[in-house]
Design a protein around this nucleic acid. Structure first.
Lengths: 218, 218
DNA sequence: GTCTATACGACGATAGAC
DNA sequence: GTCTATCGTCGTATAGAC
């Protein structure tokens, strides 16, 4: 799937509460430009020079701030988006049903931001190579997601005891797989698939009460 | 998912039953080299010069046979693999249950060929861009797959009438999504997931009798 | 029809001046 | 902190030898 998560993934030491320097503002501009271009054209189609131009800096100037080049920029963009999603996904005030509801909402939002969704989808596959700059990031990401949904689904299975044969952890893997796979099809041919409806169908199949969600508006 | 399909996708006019020329053999060597390198290193990491070198030909010589460069080579590699899978997937002597059984077998085989699986996975996401050389190919591919599984699932739903509320076409979308998504997780962290077992779980959830399949050997 | 030689512009990367 | 200059490699293209 596309966005949920992290802060957790990038658990750097807390930033030393420094003052904003000129370089920080330049960095900001560069990351902004990178996010914009990545979302529009994908990761691989964008060059360092493109990003530098949009940030109104030289190609070499960009590399001064981000020696890792596109890879490093990419991580910045990912972590930035993740911070947003972590807020809604890991809200401790929600019960299991509420968490699934949030998941549906994230799917709905994703359907409105194809650029970033496509970026995540491409990356999560590129990153299967152990040498890819985002490999560790995505491994951690899926680990956290699986844990999250296993907990959520575990609670729901306990409540509707009728399906107690289902193992929360493996069902979580299935749920995540479904979300990812739906996105692949949706990105390829948006008019042929209703991601939200298919997700709700699956939850219904699991025995989750989806009344109020079930609007098959494809 | 990774491989099933086509001949159907590349519906060129039947080849004019020509004799093998020297160039055909060279083409063969080049496609072989491309398939090998793509599987090992992915599509984007491989250069035309790499392929040419492995095929023992000049970079420009390669372009004589494949003016479209890597893109054209890519399609050759894809269609070659597809020809194999079409045989087992679209076998008309099989009933619906047999077709699902073949699907499970393909998943098992995929688990033994990570290179090509990774290539397909990366491509099916890269190809969401309408300008990608394989965009049309993948659209067609998913269309055929959905049709195929809709038919298969439709028959099974008819037999076990108890779940007749399920729409074969949308369930087919879910099944394909599951297969794709499981691969993403498996490529990223093979030791954490059993693709075959998760597929069988899903089929069981649909009410398909999976006795004899259920070997949760993760 | 098969292939080599050669060149072009854009890329990621680095060194060093200001 | 930002620049210019330069490197080797990439995909692409063309001219012409065999």
């Amino acid at each position: 799937m596309t966005s949920p998560d992290l802060d957790h993934v990038a658990d750097d030491p807390p930033p030393p509460a420094r003052r904003y320097t000129k370089g920080d503002r330049t960095k900001e501009r560069i990351v902004e430009a990178a996010a914009d271009l990545f979302s529009k054209s994908g990761y691989l189609a964008v060059s360092q020079r493109d990003i530098a131009a949009q940030a109104e800096i030289t190609h070499a100037g960009l590399l001064h701030h981000f020696p890792g080049g596109k890879d490093e920029l990419l991580m910045q963009v990912l972590e930035r988006r993740d911070a947003d999603d972590a807020v809604v996904l890991f809200d401790e005030h929600l019960d299991a049903w509420g968490h699934l509801d949030q998941t549906v909402r994230i799917v709905e939002r994703n359907a409105r931001t194809p650029g970033l969704v496509a970026l995540y989808a491409k990356l999560s596959n590129e990153a299967s190579d152990v040498n890819h700059p985002a490999h560790t990031y995505f491994r951690r990401r899926y680990e956290i997601l699986r844990e999250h949904f296993a907990t959520v689904l575990g609670e729901l299975v306990d409540r509707h005891g009728d399906r107690s044969a289902l193992d929360p952890d493996t069902v979580a893997q299935q749920l995540i797989a479904l979300l990812d796979g739906l996105q692949t099809q949706w990105l390829l041919a948006p008019e042929t698939i209703d991601m939200r409806a298919r997700l709700v169908d699956f939850l219904a199949l699991l025995g989750v009460d989806t009344t109020g969600w079930r609007t098959d508006s494809a």
